[in-house]
């Protein structure tokens, strides 16, 4: 108890000492002369849900693994919870939860055994059964992990990532293989964790997931950040022109305008039939595709 209390005090002090959860300047990682990460600057505030988007091989996972302390960097300055992940010890590691992209499991263990095992590393861990319930695996509690489906194993990964009550949680494509209901349940869990103070870094291929969860996001392509913003403003999305379509005298008409108000007023005044009227702005997916398309 004393140890737990003193570590809590220490955590509070370090919170005061360093307001940002993650600070990265000029991060580079070179494999055999090729830049996998070619100069990334990044700041993630405490309590924020930050999402990294990008195609396969863009450098997302490499970046995240450097932040997690799993990979060495070639150059750049990295601070995660106030420490350099390349040098930080096990006390730092204990403050971080990681849901790896491609970890397998001690296949001969049951879900409950594995979660309870990892819980044993933390002084104020969540109860194993509570975490298993949170990720919706209660029915599989006593099943060997190797008998589970891909999506169920992914949920075990999530359970293991949060059981130690980390202050910073890395999720690398966490919902791959989830069915829609499990994804919604997972999103609720992430929102609850964030609302209660956990900082979350999420990499994902699903743009709806990033849009639903992220406070801020960055798009990575070819080892660089090509755009950064909120889901609503990313890549000038809010400022992009609206696309107005309607049918006039049997012909399909389309116009792009910054603000559709005047156009609609004119159409109304002209007595045009607006039954088929649609006004669309670029979706996050449109913006994303044009952003990564521009680097090709």
């Amino acid at each position: 108890m004393t140890a737990a209390r003193s570590s809590l005090t220490w955590w509070k002090q370090s919170t005061i000492r360093c307001m940002e959860a993650i600070e990265v300047t000029g991060l580079r990682k070179t494999y055999g002369g090729r830049d996998a990460v070619a100069g990334i600057d990044l700041v993630v505030a405490r309590g924020e849900i930050f999402s990294l988007l990008g195609p396969n091989g863009a450098g997302k996972t490499t970046t995240v693994e450097i932040l997690e302390g799993h990979r060495r960097r070639t150059a750049g300055d990295v601070r995660v919870l106030g420490e350099d992940p390349g040098r930080a010890g096990s006390a730092w590691r204990a403050r971080i939860g990681i849901v790896l992209q491609d970890a397998d499991d001690a296949a001969d263990l049951t879900v409950h055994e594995m979660v309870r095992h990892i819980a044993g590393f933390y002084p104020e861990a969540r109860k194993a059964d509570e975490v298993i319930e949170l990720v919706g695996l209660s029915e599989k509690r006593n099943s060997k992990i190797r008998t589970l489906s891909g999506g169920q194993r992914r949920r075990v990964d999530v359970a293991l990532g949060i059981v130690g009550r980390p202050e910073l949680l890395f999720l690398d494509e966490p919902t791959t293989g989830f069915d829609p209901e499990a994804r919604r349940q997972f999103w609720d869990l992430i929102r609850t964790l964030a609302a209660d103070g956990t900082t979350i870094v999420l990499t994902t291929h699903y743009l709806d997931e990033a849009e639903a969860l992220a406070d801020r996001l960055a798009v990575v392509a070819e080892g660089r950040i090509v755009a950064e913003g909120t889901p609503a403003t990313l890549g000038g999305r809010a400022a992009a022109e609206a696309r107005v379509s309607w049918t006039e005298n049997g012909t399909a008409r389309t116009e792009q305008v910054p603000d559709p108000t005047d156009l609609i007023r004119r159409l109304l005044a002209d007595g045009v039939d607006l039954t088929t009227l649609t006004i669309t702005r670029p979706t996050l997916e449109d913006t994303y595709l044009s952003l990564i398309g521009a680097t090709r």
């Binding site: 096990s90 590393f121 969540r126 202050e167």
Partner: peptide
């Protein structure tokens, strides 16, 4: 139960 409570168990426990 959702608030972070990070920490490391004593090494002998681990």
């Amino acid at each position: 139960t959702f608030a972070p409570a990070p920490g490391r168990a004593p090494m002998r426990t681990i």
